Amino acid sequence: MAEGVLLITGASRGIGAATAILAGRAGYHVVVNYVGNQAAAETVAGTIASAGGRASVVQGDVGSEADILRMFAHADAQGRLAGLVNNAGVVDLSARVDEMSLERLERMMRINIIGSIVCAREAVKRLSTMHGGEGGGIVNLSSAAAKLGAPANYVDYASAKGAIDTFTVGLAKEVAAEGIRVNAIRPGIIATDIHASGGQPDRVAEMEASLPMKRAGTAEECAKAILWLLSDEASYTTGAILDVSGARAILP
Rank of each mutant, 00 (worst) to 15 (best):
R104V: 01
R104Y: 06
R107V: 00
R107Y: 03
M108E: 01
M108Y: 07
M109G: 08
M109V: 13
M109Y: 14
R110F: 01
I113V: 13
I113S: 10
I114V: 09
I114L: 08
G115I: 01
S116R: 15
I117W: 13
I117K: 12
I117H: 10
I117M: 13
V118A: 10
V118Y: 08
V118D: 07
C119G: 10
C119M: 12
A120I: 02
A120N: 03
A120E: 05
A120G: 12
R121V: 00
A123L: 04
R126D: 01
R126Y: 00
R126I: 03
R126T: 02
R126N: 05
L127C: 07
L127D: 03
S128A: 12
T129W: 00
T129Q: 09
M130T: 13
M130K: 09
M130W: 01
G132F: 03
G132D: 07
G133T: 01
E134Y: 02
E134N: 11
E134I: 07
E134H: 14
E134R: 15
G135Y: 03
G135T: 03
G135V: 05
G135W: 02
G135C: 03
G135I: 02
G136H: 06
V139A: 05
L141K: 03
L141S: 07
S142P: 15
S142Q: 07
S143A: 12
A144G: 13
A144E: 05
A144H: 02
A146T: 04
A146L: 11
K147Q: 05
K147E: 01
K147I: 05
L148R: 14
G149H: 08
G149I: 04
A150Y: 06
A150S: 11
A150C: 10
A150R: 10
A150N: 13
P151H: 10
P151E: 02
A152W: 11
A152F: 09
A152C: 10
A152H: 14
N153W: 09
Y154V: 00
Y154T: 09
Y154R: 15
Y154G: 08
D156C: 09
D156H: 13
D156T: 11
A158P: 09
A158R: 14
S159F: 08
S159W: 07
S159C: 08
A160G: 14
A160I: 00
K161H: 11
K161N: 08
G162Q: 15
G162L: 13
A163C: 08
A163E: 02
A163P: 14
A163G: 15
I164R: 15
I164D: 07
I164P: 14
D165T: 07
D165H: 11
T166I: 12
T166A: 14
T166Q: 13
T166R: 11
T166F: 04
F167V: 09
F167I: 09
F167P: 15
F167Y: 14
T168Q: 04
T168K: 09
V169L: 15
V169P: 13
V169I: 12
G170Y: 10
L171I: 02
L171F: 06
K173A: 05
K173T: 00
K173I: 01
K173Q: 04
